[in-house]
Every structure is written in structure tokens, then in C-alpha cells.
Deep mutational scan, measured.
Amino acid sequence: NNDALSPAIRRLLAEHNLDASAIKGTGVGGRLTREDVEKWLAKA
């Protein structure tokens, strides 16, 4: 759900042209964290 994304995470996803639904969030309530996105980028 994009409503649950912080502005910083939205920007990070946009910079790398990523789809938030492709990344499993580990934050509160399954929210994406910066670490989630960075780990996903490291694997890609």
C-alpha cells in the first residue's frame, strides 16, 4: 500500500524505478524501511 510509504522511501523507490509491491517490508505492520530497499537493491 503506497499510503504507508514514507516520503524518503517513495523517493528511494522512484530513484531506482522500483515497485514497492516487489519488496517485502519488515517494518511495523509490514512497512518498507530503507534497509529493506537497500537489501533488495544489493540482491538485484
Rank of each mutant, 00 (worst) to 15 (best):
D3K: 07
L18M: 06
K24M: 11
S6N: 07
G29L: 06
L32T: 04
G25V: 03
G27R: 00
E38K: 06
G25L: 03
L12M: 07
L32Q: 02
V37E: 00
D3T: 11
A20M: 06
A14E: 11
A22V: 12
D3M: 10
L5F: 06
D36S: 00
D36M: 02
N1P: 13
D36K: 00
G25Q: 02
G30R: 03
T33R: 05
N17T: 05
D19E: 09
R10T: 09
L32V: 12
T33H: 01
K43W: 12
N17E: 06
N2Q: 14
V37K: 00
T26S: 10
P7Q: 12
V28P: 15
T33Y: 00
D19L: 08
R31I: 12
V37F: 03
D3W: 02
W40E: 10
R11E: 15
A14H: 08
V28Q: 13
G30S: 04
H16K: 04
L12R: 02
A42D: 10
L41W: 06
I23C: 04
D3V: 10
D19Q: 09
N17Y: 06
P7S: 08
A4I: 13
L18N: 01
V28Y: 09
R31S: 12
L18H: 03
D36Y: 01
K39M: 14
E15R: 11
R10G: 06
A44I: 13
L32G: 00
D36F: 01
R11K: 15
R11D: 15
I9R: 01
G29E: 07
P7V: 11
D36Q: 02
G30E: 04
V28E: 14
E35I: 08
L5E: 05
I23N: 00
P7R: 09
L12T: 03
N1Y: 07
H16D: 00
L32R: 02
D19I: 09
A4E: 14
L13G: 00
L12E: 05
E35A: 11
A4T: 13
R31G: 07
G25E: 01
G25H: 05
I23R: 01
V28G: 06
T33F: 00
H16F: 09
P7L: 12
N2H: 14
R34I: 15
L41K: 01
N1E: 14
L41N: 01
L13R: 00
E38R: 08
G30N: 05
A8Y: 12
A20S: 07
S21K: 11
A44M: 14
I9N: 01
A22K: 12
K43E: 15
H16N: 07
N1A: 14
S6H: 10
E35D: 11
E15S: 08
N1R: 03
E15I: 14
L32Y: 02
V28S: 10
N2I: 14
A8R: 08
K24R: 11
G30H: 04
R10E: 15
G30Y: 01
G29Q: 06
L18G: 05
R11L: 15
G25S: 03
I9M: 06
R11A: 15
I9P: 00
N1V: 13
N17R: 08
N2P: 13
E35R: 11
L18Q: 04
K43N: 12
D3G: 10
N17I: 04
R10A: 10
T26M: 04
P7A: 15
D3R: 07
L32F: 04
L12I: 07
D19W: 05
K39S: 11
R10F: 06
R10W: 07
G27V: 02
V28T: 11
R11G: 10
A8E: 15
G29P: 02
L18P: 01
A22E: 11
S21Y: 06
E35W: 09
S21G: 11
S21E: 09
A44H: 15
G30I: 01
L13Q: 00
A14I: 07
N1M: 13
K43D: 14
K43Y: 13
E15D: 09
V28H: 12
L12H: 07
K43Q: 15
V37N: 00
D19H: 09
T26G: 03
T26K: 03
G29I: 03
G25Y: 01
I23S: 01
N2C: 11
S6T: 13
A8P: 05
G25N: 02
T33L: 08
A14N: 07
A22S: 10
D36L: 02
A14G: 05
H16A: 06
V28W: 08
I9T: 05
L32K: 01
R31M: 12
A4P: 12
E35H: 09
A22N: 09
A20H: 07
L32I: 14
L12P: 02
A44N: 13
K24V: 14
I23H: 01
A4Y: 14
E15Q: 14
L5T: 05
T26H: 04
A42I: 12
I23L: 11
T33W: 00
S21W: 08
L18S: 04
R31P: 03
R10M: 10
T26D: 02
E38I: 13
K39E: 14
S6F: 04
E15L: 15
K39N: 15
A42Y: 08
A44R: 09
A14W: 11
G25K: 03
R31A: 15
L18C: 05
V37S: 00
A22W: 15
A8H: 10
E35T: 08
A44V: 13
A20F: 06
D3S: 10
W40R: 05
I23G: 01
I9Q: 03
K43V: 13
G25W: 02
V28N: 09
L12D: 02
A42C: 04
L5S: 03
K43G: 13
L5I: 12
A20I: 10
A42K: 10
P7D: 15
V37L: 07
E35G: 07
T33M: 05
D3F: 03
A44Q: 13
I23F: 05
A14T: 07
G27P: 01
N2D: 14
E38G: 05
N1T: 12
D36V: 01
A22I: 12
V28M: 11
E38Q: 09
A8D: 15
D36T: 00
L13K: 00
A44T: 12
A42L: 11
L12Y: 08
L13F: 06
G25M: 03
A4H: 14
E35K: 08
G30K: 03
D19P: 06
A44G: 09
R10N: 10
E15G: 05
K39Y: 12
A22G: 06
K24F: 08
R31L: 11
E38M: 13
L41G: 01
L13I: 06
L5V: 09
V28D: 11
L18A: 07
D3Q: 11
L12Q: 05
D36A: 01
P7M: 10
L41R: 01
P7E: 15
I23K: 01
A4R: 12
K39R: 14
R31H: 09
G30W: 01
I23P: 01
W40Y: 15
D3E: 11
V37D: 00
G27H: 02
R34A: 12
N2Y: 05
A8G: 06
G30Q: 04
T33S: 04
E15A: 14
L41I: 14
V37T: 01
H16V: 03
E15K: 14
V37R: 00
S21R: 10
R10V: 15
N2R: 07
E38L: 15
W40G: 03
L5A: 04
A14F: 09
A22C: 07
W40Q: 07
T33E: 04
K24I: 14
L5Q: 06
A14S: 07
R10Y: 08
L5N: 04
E38D: 09
E15M: 15
W40M: 10
L13A: 03
A42Q: 12
S21M: 09
P7N: 10
D3P: 10
K43T: 14
G30D: 05
G29R: 05
W40F: 15
I23Y: 02
A8F: 09
V37H: 00
A22F: 09
T33D: 01
W40N: 03
G30F: 02
L32M: 05
L32W: 05
A42W: 08
L18W: 06
N1D: 14
N2W: 05
L5Y: 06
D19G: 05
T33A: 01
S21T: 12
L13D: 00
I23M: 08
S6A: 08
R10P: 01
G27A: 04
E15T: 09
R34L: 15
L18K: 03
L41F: 06
H16M: 09
N2M: 13
T26P: 02
A22Y: 09
D36G: 00
A42G: 07
R11H: 15
N17F: 07
L5P: 05
G30P: 01
V28F: 09
N2K: 11
W40I: 11
L18R: 01
S21A: 12
A42H: 09
G27I: 02
A14Y: 09
P7F: 05
S6G: 10
E38N: 07
V37A: 05
N17P: 02
D19K: 08
I23W: 05
L18I: 15
E15F: 14
K39Q: 13
L18Y: 06
G29Y: 05
D3I: 10
